[in-house]
Structures are given as structure tokens and as C-alpha cells.
Amino acid sequence: MSWDWNFAIEVFPEILGAIWLVIAITFGSFIVALILGLVLTFARRSSFKPLSLLVYAFIEFVRSTPPLVQLFFVYFALPAIGISINKYTAGIVTLGIHYSTYVSEVYRSGIEAIPKGQWEAAKAMNFSKTQTWFRIILPQAIPPVIPMLGNYLIVLFKETPILMAIGVGEFLQKAQLIGSTHFKYLEPITIVGLLFLLLSYPSALLINRLEQKSNQAFTGKKNRRLTNQFHLKSGA
């Protein structure tokens, strides 16, 4: 069997058609991971020991079981106890929860790098606990770990094909359908690989640049330029 250009060109748009779905699922899951990761980080640090132990156990459990098993659990097993959700939500929730445990670890490393003196100054200025987190600690802890978070975004993106297992029409499922219809797998599967390469590689480069910039954070002019760029990107 040899490479068939006509066939490849013919099926490319169909596979590419899944791009918005894949992007939506990737960012949807990532947002869940970012928020839930923060909740886990706070809970893990709670002075209420049962809560912090429970969260510790949860994190270890989620990390040491395969995402595919978790996906089946959420989609096929939860309905048995009366919780049923559609496949897209199931996918986003599963990937979101799975990656929240890694994101939480990233936050933790950022938070632990903040000197004790910052907490003490926040107390001396009489900020509340919440204000201390959101005005003093997190704004310092998160910028340096943005590149690490970005790496997880890419890893998460590359994990989306597992959603094929519950019938989500992402790249791989499209390719597999095309392949089984025409009994030709080489072109569609290769296209899927290329799409992942084309989307991940530039993102990785971008993250590398972010990494270099975040090393210069808070030193004045350079930092201000960086924040301006963020503002421009977010349209502010």
C-alpha cells in the first residue's frame, strides 16, 4: 500500500473539521484543571487535617490510575449511581480532574517559592487570608510557573484522543472512521499525527519564550512590557 495524495487531500478537511471541538475540549478541560487545581491546593494546605489528608489521598489516587479508566468510570460507571452526563462533559470533567492534580502540584511549587517574609508582611498590613492569597501570594507564585502550566496544556491536548473511547468525534475518531470506511488508514492517521505536531510545536515554542520572560519578572521595565503584552492579548 502506498501513499495516496488524492485521498489524503480529500479526507484532510474532514479530519481538520474536528479542530474546534478538540480546541474547545482542551481549553475547557484546562480551565477546569486550573480552577480545581487551585481548590485542591488550598484544601491540601488546610489546617483541618482530615480535609488535607482526604485531598492528599484523592490526588494520589487520581494520579496513579490511567485517565482512560477514569474516563470510563465517569461515563459508564457513574450512571449506575444515578449521575449521567453527556460524552463531551464527561471528557472535559475527566481530563480536567486528572490534570488538576498536576496543576495543583505546579501551584504548590510556585507558592513554596514565596519567602516567609511575604506572608508576614501581609499579616502585618492586616490583609485577610483571602486577600493575602489573591493579592500577595498568588500574583507572585503564578507568573513563574506559567511555562510549567503551559506544558501541561500541551500534554493535555495530546491526551484528547482517549475521548474517542466514549465516541467523542475528535481527530483520531474521525480518522478511524474514514479508515474503516475506505480500508485505508495510512493517510488519515498520518494526518492526525501531523495535526498534533503542527499545533503542539508552535505552542511549545511560545511557552519557551514565556519561560525566558518569566525569568525576568518584577525587575521593572521588562516586566511592565510583559504585562502590557498580556493586556493586549486579552484585549484589555
Partner: peptide, 13 residues
């Protein structure tokens, strides 16, 4: 109560 620390502890961000 207010306090000034040996190592300043300004908010760098």
C-alpha cells in the same frame, strides 16, 4: 499595630 522588618518584605510585584 504596624511593623517594619529587617529585610523590608516589600511586595515585589
Amino acid at each position: 499595630i504596624g511593623m517594619v522588618f529587617q529585610h523590608f518584605n516589600l511586595f515585589p510585584h
